[in-house]
Design a protein around this nucleic acid. Structure first.
Length: 664
RNA sequence: GCACCCGUAGCUCAAUGGAUAGAGCACCAGACUUCGGAUCUGGAUGUUGGGGGUUCGAGUCCCUCCGGGUGCGCCA
């Protein structure tokens, strides 16, 4: 309903603006906001400020925004669903809704906004398959997964990729460790439990191994060389490592309800010569240059136009002087494929089946019959840490140079900042701080050093703590049920923790903060819904909808605006709660526009806080006792409000990938 | 040296160029014969790092300085 009113007003204002000022605006250009205080109205439109600016620019005349607002108000006249307009402040047009109409038309549907259209590819997680995932990887996966949920909710077709760099240095290093430090054969690996943890430690040992003797690093080059050809014992070992670790990662992410559609591997990109085709296309399009002199002599490079200085042209090497292709080169080839610009396709096979039956596909070197139809997207979104902005810039530049499709321009690098450790959390992990680190406020996690909070460890701790709380409060529930609830709470706590920060904010990981269930946390929001569930357990067979069709608009309006001294009933207060609950769709649009799930997370928390406040209004003076309210109309309205809050809040949490228990 | 990000309450963080800059944590004091206290109410904390500019309006945009982080690989 709220969204409908917004769209109606925007459209009407566009024609009013056209008529009065001969200025053409599109509805999307008209901004609406919610007034800071409810007395000011239900919707504020600052369009008069914008018009004053434009009029000044074209006619040189200064016009008072208030006059413009007043004229627009006259032109709008009477609008359905709006009881009146007021001009406020410097020139806001504030709309007051017809409350009874609004209440009868409440719905919890996500209204599709401006669609991207076609298929969108979201790539996230993409952890090197050589060790256990840590908390930083979780930030990536949770961000990506939430974006996926948001886009799908608005009706977009989304394909989820998790890119697997199975032939890179990191996998090679673990292979060096297995072969030269542990001296393990392939058959001996099978019996190792928690293989990702085992490799976590081994990887750190390899780092030290390289430092012990400079010659040891030669071993890495040998392994990498073997991986290039993709055959032999070393290649088999590497394939075993990356495949088994990948399974570990999938299971870890599955704990947080994160799944993928397809797992493209670097080995197949190499084997199928994606780069060769991409290379030819880039050359034909004049997108890359062969350097004949200078420090990059003998290399093929891509230049970033308009952003180069005399001394150091801004460019990225795609082909080295020895003829080998860089990672960025391969990434460009992969992205050309993503967008259907390569005329080549992978072979696929099913890699893993989730408990709900959903299948994940992986690319494979064998020829297969299956053509699941991956790729050929209109735009891509890459969730990759901010440190890779430079190569990501060239990836986008590359694909744009090879396509005239404007939609591709909407593709984006969803850059996010790292998760780092506070010195305290590093010590809690048993890490001895060196002299340099001791002064720092934050300490980077490092796979090479084996320093980091492993994802599964953290989830275990959260579940353990949640279980203790659930058991304390619900001792009568069977163990299995309590564990199920504890899991839901743990996921809620973790996902909210990772989403409450904006992407550009560095998260300084702290165990106490991550493990709390009080205050601004996921379980706080879940708790509000558990309380609501409690209310409805006591009101099983209530029929609000038939009441709603029979109650008079006058009565509804009265209930939602009157203030009773005797009982404390405040209709305006209830209206503002309802109004806030109706803002979900608006918030979702903001979150998608900015590709910033934080907006949604903060909103969910605020809505839960509003409800908890409402719930506690019964303290001291029993004002809004839903179950015990003696007056039928009042009781029905309270049920309606609580039910609406429940629907909207549940939806908001679903978008964040957080489930709701009925008890906790 | 060049580029990007950050700097907001004691701490951790919010705030599509809009109305009186907000939350959580921590601290203190409170909350009914509970629709569940993982909750709520109250307390007080701010020259939004400094300075200049743009405009009806700046935490937000521009310039500059200070402080912190990251990138600027023929690594991935």
């Amino acid at each position: 309903m709220l969204t409908q009113i917004q769209e109606t007003l925007k459209t009407l204002l566009c024609s009013a603006v056209e008529k009065l000022y001969s200025i053409t605006m599109s509805p999307t250009e008209i901004v609406t906001e919610f007034p800071p205080r409810p007395e000011l109205g239900d919707l504020a439109i600052p369009v008069a400020f914008e018009l004053a600016k434009r009029l000044k620019a074209t006619t040189e005349k200064k016009v008072n925004p208030r006059q413009i607002a007043e004229a627009l108000r006259q032109e709008l006249g009477k609008v359905d669903g709006i009881s009146r307009f007021e001009i406020a402040g410097g020139g806001y047009i504030n709309a007051f809704f017809d409350r009874s109409t609004f209440v009868t038309k409440l719905n919890s549907d996500i209204a599709p906004g401006e669609k991207f259209g076609g298929k969108l590819i979201v790539e996230h997680t993409s952890v090197n398959p050589n060790k256990a995932a840590h908390i930083g990887h979780l930030r990536n996966a949770v961000l990506g997964d939430t974006i996926v949920r948001m886009l799908k909710a608005t009706g977009e077709q989304v394909e989820v990729h998790n890119y697997i760099d199975n032939t890179g240095v990191q996998v090679a290093d673990v292979v060096v460790g297995l072969k030269h430090i542990e001296k393990k054969s392939l058959s001996e690996l099978e019996s190792i439990d928690k293989f990702d943890y085992y490799c976590w430690d081994l990887y750190a040992r390899v780092g030290r191994f390289y430092e012990e003797a400079p010659d040891n690093k030669q071993l890495r080059a040998e392994v990498l060389h073997a991986l290039e050809h993709g055959q032999g014992e070393v290649a088999e070992l590497a394939d075993y490592v990356s495949t088994r670790i990948l399974k570990c990662h999938l299971k870890t992410m599955q704990r947080l309800d994160i799944t993928y559609d397809v797992l493209p591997r670097e080995s197949e990109i190499i084997k199928l010569n994606f780069w060769q085709t991409a290379f030819e296309k880039l050359k034909q399009a004049g997108a890359i240059y062969y350097e004949t002199e200078g420090r990059n002599k003998g290399c093929w490079v891509m230049r970033s136009e308009g952003n180069k200085s005399e001394s150091e042209p801004d460019e990225k090497i795609l082909v080295r002087s020895n003829g080998t292709v860089t990672y960025t080169g391969k990434d460009i080839a992969y992205h050309l494929w993503k967008l259907g610009l390569l005329e080549l396709d992978f072979n696929y096979k099913v890699f893993y089946t989730y408990p709900n039956g959903k299948q994940v596909w992986i690319t494979t070197p064998e020829l297969t019959e299956d053509r699941p139809g991956f790729g050929k997207a209109t735009a891509y979104f890459n969730v990759i840490d901010v440190g890779q902005s430079y190569p990501q810039h060239y990836v986008k530049l590359g694909v744009k140079l090879l396509s005239s499709n404007k939609q591709i321009d909407k593709s984006a690098h969803l850059a996010y900042e790292k998760v780092v450790l506070t010195p305290r959390s590093a010590r809690e992990l048993g890490y001895e701080l060196g002299q340099e680190d001791a002064h720092r406020s934050q300490i980077s996690m490092s796979g090479r050093k084996g320093l980091g909070v492993k994802a599964d460890d953290l989830i275990d701790k959260l579940e353990e703590k949640a279980l203790a709380g659930v058991t304390e409060r619900n001792p009568e529930l069977p163990q299995e049920k309590r564990e199920e609830i504890a899991h839901i709470l743990a996921v809620g706590a973790l996902r909210y923790y990772l989403l409450k920060y904006t992407r550009s904010s560095v998260i300084a990981f702290d165990f106490d903060e991550a493990l709390t269930f009080e205050g601004e946390t996921g379980p706080y929001i879940q708790y509000a819904l558990v309380r609501i569930a409690g209310i409805f357990r006591k009101m099983a067979d209530i029929d609000v909808s038939s009441w709603l069709t029979n109650v008079s608009p006058e009565k509804l309006t009265q209930l939602l605006s009157m203030k009773e001294e005797a009982t404390g009933w405040d209709g305006n207060y209830l209206w503002s709660l309802l109004h806030f609950a109706a803002q979900l769709n608006d918030v979702l649009r903001t979150a998608i526009r900015s590709l910033e799930p934080t907006h949604l997370a903060k909103y969910a928390y605020q809505l839960a806080a509003r409800f908890n406040e409402f719930y506690n209004k019964s303290a001291g003076m029993p004002i809004y006792k839903v179950v015990a309210e003696p007056d039928l109309d009042k009781r029905m309205l309270l049920v309606l409000i609580v039910d609406y809050v429940r629907r909207q809040l549940t939806l908001a949490l679903q978008l964040l990938g957080i489930n709701v228990p009925d008890r906790m």
